[in-house]
Amino acid sequence: MRIPKAASNPVSDMQRSRTRKNWLLSAPALVVLAAASSGPLLIVLVYSFLSAGEYGGVVWKFSTDAWFNVVFFRDIFDGTTTFADAHMTILWRSVRLSFITTLITLAAGFPTAYFIATRPRRNRSLWLFLITVPFWTNLLIRTFAILEVIRNEGLINIGLQTLGIIDKPIQMLYTDFAIMVGMTYVYLPLMVLPLYASMERLNFSLVEAAYDLYATRHKVLHRIIIPLVKPGIIAGSILVFIPSLGAFVTPRVLGGGKKMMLGNLIELQFGAGRNWPLGAALSVTLLALVMAALLMYVRTTQRHSGSVR
């Protein structure tokens, strides 16, 4: 019994020391991430169960008030409890606008990714580069650029007015529409990139085979191309949906104070609202929504790589 064990030792020792080395190499990054990214998330969870301090901050006393306040509104004067309409409106707006944004970026991004994927190979990286450049530039600046286009004295309104189509500017800024346009604009590259990745891998002899079997262009698109690039569609949708849901800068700049999304509501609690536990509870809610979306993504991708549809 002992001899074979001893004989196998050098190998497993080597393996073990290699694993130890790998952990040691990764450790510093993990420590920093734990300290300044994932670890603090736990504190948020804890905070959501504390009582609010009078001037911001918290009182270290267990309370479910914050969670209660996420959904309900208690009138300070007569003590009646109603549904927290304001919160629900904002939550609904976040989900709805994120969803619409995802749909629009998909509708625009799919043809764009397809266009790039069908260029001659040597030109593709240049087209792709043109998509990525805006992505690597400042989100705030891009949002600001949209603001300049859609505000009352902006490019669109001035243009329409000079053309005589309208005589007073259309109010676009500080509406849901503005937020949606802005998010579509800033997150479009996130849709195109994964779509392109799966289209580039698309085996075009399958398209040839479909044409060979009498499919029309429309049928080729619907029966062959779309089902085959579905992983890219799902990945792109998730990549757009998640940051849209947590968007902060875009609704703040384009929605003004009027049209808030979840991110702005959270900020409000840590600023003027002075209700940190409520802010924490809202953050946890947002995180839960995002995790649910991610989980759904993992589920569907697993199903797709798995057995028969």
Binding site: A36, S37, S283
Partner: peptide, 23 residues
């Protein structure tokens, strides 16, 4: 380790921001 390294990409920035603010 992979999950940990990619974690900042998955969590909305606003949540991380709030968490760091508290910490």
């Amino acid at each position: 380790i992979y999950a940990m390294i990619n974690q900042p990409l998955m969590v909305p920035e606003i949540v991380t921001a709030v968490a760091l603010l508290i910490l």
